[in-house]
Design a protein around this nucleic acid. Structure first.
Lengths: 187, 187
DNA sequence: GTCTATACCGTGATAGAC
DNA sequence: GTCTATCACGGTATAGAC
């Protein structure tokens, strides 16, 4: 792995653990085992390096989501698979957590990959819900965009509940509640 | 308002805007119009002042929640009122956002009021759902604790979606989706 | 391309005058 | 009770040697 890659990977870890405001170049360099010079050679500064790290994390998350949402099964099953997929719940969402970072939100450049990733997953789920409506698995009264937002919000909020209590249980409880509301009447 | 109160209020605002890690004593003092001495006279340091601020915000939030959840109406209507209550969506939840703060989560003392507040609201909603089940407004197959976690998660996650996109719309969309799933079949 | 040295400012806390 | 002075340390960036 190149020095540039090590810097990006270290930044990704720290952004996940401590957010943008809580992550210092010094901490990144220590974790990457690199000196100041390397970082400022490959990147213009902290925001530039963070952008590279966020973009890589965003791509990863998209791929992971597509892995379950694009998998086999009925629309309900694919959404269930998304909701139940293995997660490191107490670590939170590496993309969602950035929305609570004032410096990320203040920068259109840093916020863009966050926005795009969440939006992409939302549209993906919305399409699956519409598919489920056509197949009669979901009530036609439901709105794909709305349910997609609810599904995504339940996940993002589930992390909040879990981290507040210090246990992953609350995440799973919220997911079970949503699934009980989504369960097709036929089953 | 006493100096101590001004310090606490300034801290509350900054914790909401920038989180714990992003808030410096200097910024607090500037906003409160006080000197260093005042702060260290009334509080032992930044964590102590933050604890006072978080406790006050937690009490406020609990009171606001009780205002709608303990209001008039059927169980569904009270939950709807909670979900639809006026919020400064783009500012996020002053309590929920703290769960993404590494230093808050690392401290049992700072995390406690966050945990207790969220837990209290969750139990309050769970009771209302159970009430609704007794009245036949909610399906008996639903679980109060689960639905309560879903409701709270939708709200907390709604803030994430809204802040990612820079618009409150996503919050409302998620709430509408949840309400469409919760709507009593009778109506 | 990577390193160390240096600089400057902000953070968080203490000391002691008023 | 509040102020300013001071302090040690960390954050972010630059310079220049190797």
């Amino acid at each position: 792995m190149s020095t540039s890659d090590r810097l990006i990977e270290s930044t990704r870890e720290l952004l996940w653990e401590r957010g943008y405001v809580g992550t210092s170049p010094k901490a990144i360099l220590e974790r990457a085992g690199a000196g100041q010079g390397s970082m400022y050679h490959h990147f213009r500064g902290k925001p530039d390096l963070a952008l590279a790290a966020i973009r890589r994390t965003a791509e990863d998350l998209r791929a992971t989501a597509e892995g379950v949402l694009g998998g086999p099964g009925t629309p309900y099953e694919r959404i269930e698979a998304y909701l139940r997929r293995e997660r490191d719940v107490l670590r939170g969402c590496p993309i969602g957590r950035l929305t609570m970072d004032p410096d990320v939100i203040a920068s259109d450049e840093l916020r863009a990959p966050v926005d795009e990733t969440i939006d992409w997953i939302r549209e993906r789920i919305a399409g699956i819900v519409e598919e489920g409506k056509e197949q009669g698995q979901f009530a036609s009264s439901l709105d794909g965009e709305e349910i997609a937002a609810t599904v995504l919000a339940t996940v993002q909020g589930g992390y909040v509940l879990a981290r507040a209590s210090g246990s992953p249980a609350a995440f799973d409880t919220g997911v079970r509640g949503l699934l009980s509301l989504l369960t097709p009447p036929s089953s």
